[in-house]
Amino acid sequence: MTIASNFLVFVALGITLLLVWRQSWRGRVRLFVVQSWVLAALAVTLGALVRRPALVAVGVVFAVMKTWIIPRVLRRMGHGSPLRPVAPGRSAGLPVLGAGALVVVAYAVMLPITGAVATGVPTRGAIPLAFAVALIGLFVCVTGRDALGQVIGFLVFENGLFALALLATYGLPGIVEAGAFLEVLVLVLLMEGMLVQIRREHDSLDIERLRELRG
């Protein structure tokens, strides 16, 4: 069973790297949906491993939220923005290299606390991988050239943290899970409203145009 969970997290990391490489919005949303399915499967797998029905329920809610509701909102956000091809002279090679380096960083941070000290946690080996997903998501978020890139980066970051929480704790108390789900949902809806307004004001989602406030 731990082999299954390690494999699932590994796949999720692979998808994250693809997402860094991929530049089209539709492609990125599709990759995000696939990744969310993988993580929902992870929740169900772990639920079976430790016999906690609550985890299976978390997996189902997660799947509904991140493979259905949020992607719908994301596709709405993408409407109307020109499909931006990779700008000439800016290949995706460098970001992918950066993402690879972040995997190393994730191991450096997480190994000391997932090695010998944590022998009681069978899934400890995958924790650095999940953290790498989160770090790369953050990387996509901060280097995003437009608001859409920042939103998808944030969502991948959130997915990585969800996987990390699963692997490290086998489910947080229900009230925290519920709260976290609700907040992500509200946040994405708020973001959508804001993007609509940004597009109306600036006729673009390029964050370079958001530069009224300095100093």
Partner: peptide, 13 residues
């Protein structure tokens, strides 16, 4: 959130 999870993880460890 990640920090809170790790505190919980400390308890699992």
């Amino acid at each position: 959130f990640c920090g809170t999870v790790l505190v919980y993880y400390a308890e699992v460890v």
